[in-house]
Design a protein around this nucleic acid. Structure first.
Length: 706
RNA sequence: GGCGGGGUAGCUCAGUUGGUUAGAGUACCGGAUUCAUAAUCCGGCUGUCACGGGUUCGAGUCCCGUCCCCGCUACCA
């Protein structure tokens, strides 16, 4: 076999947050692929680094009253520890804030300029005069220009979901200093990607660089039009690298981040006596990037242009995965499914997650669901019941004798399992880990059947059968070893332990093709535990309190609010203090209390009991129902309400509800809305969590709510 | 609204270029076994392959239409 040379990267985690189980999809996927390549005998180098630049880091460092470099150093160490805990093994783990990266950014910049791809022009942007820094959209807040909701970010309103420019905000203020930003012009530098349109088209649409779904998406979403200039500079203050020929300006974090792949490789080269050009400017080296679908554009439109201009090797393949959901829903801090890597490690075995993700990963971009029941079932059924069981049910019989000196007749079991290695190798190669895991488990079934049919525990009763018992166990343990070899990229710890058990370390895929005979067997020890469901619950509970605690404390500056007052800090603890109703703090945490309002403020809002006399779908609208409200007599209101996801029109007719009767009418696409109905709940991920308010029976339409 | 991907057993899914009686795991029921971590083995059960047309000797598979779900994207509150 010819040895391939493969350079692999996983996306650089941002130094602004901790690793969580969503991140781990990618790092586990990549690590499995890398371990497979190494096991298969290829020369494979896996590099990664912390992504450290940008305004968010600057902001956080300022909040924490320390330097950016101190912040990113701590976070990098936390990331390194988390990855190590999950057995993710980088050949080098660097940082984008390093000398190698600064030098490479300069080299790239020079080359891109030389290629004539850079242009500059003035851009007007909001500026914080106190902090002397320009403000990206997300660092400006103000009232939404559409609906007037206060404290909305500069790009969109989380209340009404409208999008706008930061300059449209009403009463804008800087999140840094709280002062009103002013509009200031500043020079920006752009890469004219349109100049490389033909190249990008060719690179994305031919060859096997991208999954066809991605190639098609790029073609229809971007390549049909002119490509926009890419703004790659930011004026001071900015935490990053200053652009040498544009003092006072810095490369945008997304310019230096991918170059960080190369910088990290460079560090590895220095430590291993290798030449960078041998890896990044050598057509014999394959370059594989693993990323999430959210950062596809940077890796498929901009990055190839940069590499081409600088004379570096273009990626062989960009592997793109989807997002993680937990029990079918987006990870949620309030539900406790936003689980940090370190929290997981406190409760559960990292190999379990590696295996579970492996059973779910395919070359496709589908989102991946972590179903916690299925998770436990798969570990118990597949790994403990099938794979490990093969060893635990036979090893004891040969503790004294070891494996037979000659591989016994086994009805073709070993040969068949060996033959499956080709298909499995192919599945690993194309990242179809799901197929690999299914195939391995079927092989495990066959091996368990072999043991059941051979019944060594019966034969063992007569010493005369010792040889036959040894042979049966030799077969079982050999197939176990084959399967563990096949699983080694996913379960490196199990592979190491199996190697120790059989006195023959698993280091190569090829070991699955030759039986092991005549070795001593170590005393059998538990290789893997079953999943304790209570630990899963504990992990979720811990994740829940972690994050719910923060907004609660922030939300209750006035300690007298009744809800906060009755909830001692950490009341959610393990669900241990269930009051009669066990109402958790999540809802309040999700939407903190608003500022104090006076009785006069309240009376401005005229709330009335109303009866829904008609309700119908608005076919063109996703969320809206058209309601006709009666306030009694002839007084009617036409109201559009965003409750379609939770209510059917027919179940609303006749109901009494509470409406805002004096709300300024608003012209909507579908007609005039003359008020609003009141409802609790934020809608939830599927929009089902909306609860209309109703008066107790006896209330009459038109009565005011006081 | 646009683009893309889907809809197969209660649940999770596999079904290669159209080809016998549509499969696996799990769940469930019955049996065997007691070596193994309540593990394992055998048997059984469950299907309008979303729906309606079409092509074909033959359609889960190909074509057209409809419905529903998911992702991206747009618009709207």
């Amino acid at each position: 076999m010819t040895q391939r040379r493969i350079l692999v990267t996983a996306a650089l985690p941002y130094a602004n947050g901790h690793i969580h189980i969503g991140h781990l999809v990618e790092y586990i996927q990549t690590d499995i692929w890398v371990r497979y390549q190494k096991l298969a005998g290829n020369r494979c180098v896996f590099v990664c680094a912390d992504d450290t630049h940008g305004t968010a880091i600057m902001l956080r460092a300022r909040q924490e009253k320390r330097s950016e470099t101190a912040l990113i150093a701590d976070m990098r160490q936390a990331h390194v520890d988390d990855f190590a805990g999950f057995g993710i093994e980088f050949d080098n783990y660097g940082s984008t804030h390093c000398d190698e990266n600064r030098a490479l950014c300069g080299e790239f910049w020079g080359a891109i300029r030389k290629a004539g791809l850079v242009s500059e022009r003035e851009v007007e942007q909001l500026y914080d005069p106190v902090e002397k820094t320009f403000l990206a959209d997300r660092f400006v807040k103000g009232k939404c220009p559409k609906c007037g909701t206060p404290d909305q970010y500069g790009d969109n309103c989380e209340k009404c979901f409208s999008t706008y420019n930061a300059t449209d905000l009403i009463d804008p203020y800087s999140v840094f200093s709280g002062t009103k930003p002013e509009l200031r012009p500043a020079m920006h530098w752009f890469i004219r990607t349109e100049d490389e349109h033909a190249f990008i088209e060719q690179w994305t649409q031919t060859g096997d660089h991208l999954h066809s779904d991605v190639a098609n998406w790029l073609a229809s979403a971007f390549l049909v039009d002119e490509l926009h200039d890419w703004d790659v500079s930011r004026p001071a203050k900015y935490f990053g690298f200053e652009i040498p020929d544009a003092p006072g300006n810095y490369w945008y974090v997304w310019f230096d981040a991918p170059i960080g792949y190369i910088a990290s490789t460079h560090q590895w080269c220095k430590a291993n006596n290798e030449q960078l050009a041998d890896w990044w400017q050598n057509p014999d080296v394959e370059i594989h990037h693993f990323i999430g679908k959210d950062i596809t554009r940077f890796h498929t439109l901009f990055w190839p242009v940069m590499l081409k201009a600088a004379g570096y090797t273009l990626p062989t393949k960009v592997h793109i995965h989807g997002f993680l959901t937990v029990d079918g829903e987006k990870m949620s801090k309030s539900k406790g499914t936003f689980v940090r890597a370190s929290t997981y490690l406190k409760h559960l075995d990292p190999q379990w997650l590696r295996y579970y993700y492996a059973t779910k990963l395919t070359p496709k971009l589908d989102n991946l669901d972590l179903n916690l029941d299925e998770f436990a079932e798969k570990i118990d059924g597949d790994l403990v019941g099938k794979i490990v069981n093969l060893a635990s049910r036979t090893a004891r019989f040969v503790e004294q004798s070891g494996l037979s000196a000659k591989y016994p007749e086994d009805g073709g079991l070993f040969a068949d399992t060996a033959a499956a290695g080709r298909e499995l190798a192919d599945a690993y190669q194309v990242c179809d880990f799901n197929r690999a895991m299914r195939t391995i488990m079927l092989l495990g079934d066959r091996a368990n059947k072999f043991v059941a049919d051979a019944e060594p525990w019966k034969l063992n009763k007569d010493p005369a059968n010792a040889g036959r018992v040894q042979d049966i166990c030799t077969v079982a343990l050999n197939v176990f070893r084959q399967l563990v070899t096949y699983l080694a990229p996913v379960l490196p710890k199990l592979a190491a332990e199996a190697g120790a058990l059989l006195n023959d370390p698993i280091t190569s895929w090829e070991q699955s093709q030759q039986p092991l005979v005549g070795t001593k067997i170590a005393k059998f020890e538990h290789l893997m535990n079953r999943v304790d469901r209570k630990r899963i619950t504990a992990m979720i509970e811990e994740s829940r309190e972690d994050l719910a605690a923060k907004p609660t404390t922030q939300a209750a500056p006035t300690a007298e609010t009744p809800v906060a007052g009755t909830l001692p800090a950490g009341a959610a603890e393990a669900g241990a203090a269930p009051s009669q109703w066990s109402d958790g703090p999540e809802a309040l945490a999700a939407e903190p209390l608003a500022a104090v309002c006076t009785i006069d403020d309240f009376t401005k809002v005229d709330l009335r009991v109303a009866r829904i006399v008609a309700a119908e779908h608005v076919p063109e609208a996703k969320k809206l129902l058209r309601l006709t409200l009666s306030l009694g007599g002839e007084e009617k209101r036409n109201v559009f309400a965003g409750i379609k996801s939770a209510y059917k029109p027919e179940e609303l007719v006749g109901r009494l509800i509470i409406c805002v009767a004096n709300l300024q009418p608003r012209q909507m696409k579908f007609g005039l809305s003359e008020g609003m109905v009141t409802a609790a709940g934020g809608g939830g991920p599927d929009g089902k969590e909306i609860f209309l308010l109703s008066p107790d029976s006896g209330a009459k339409p038109g009565q005011r709510v006081h």
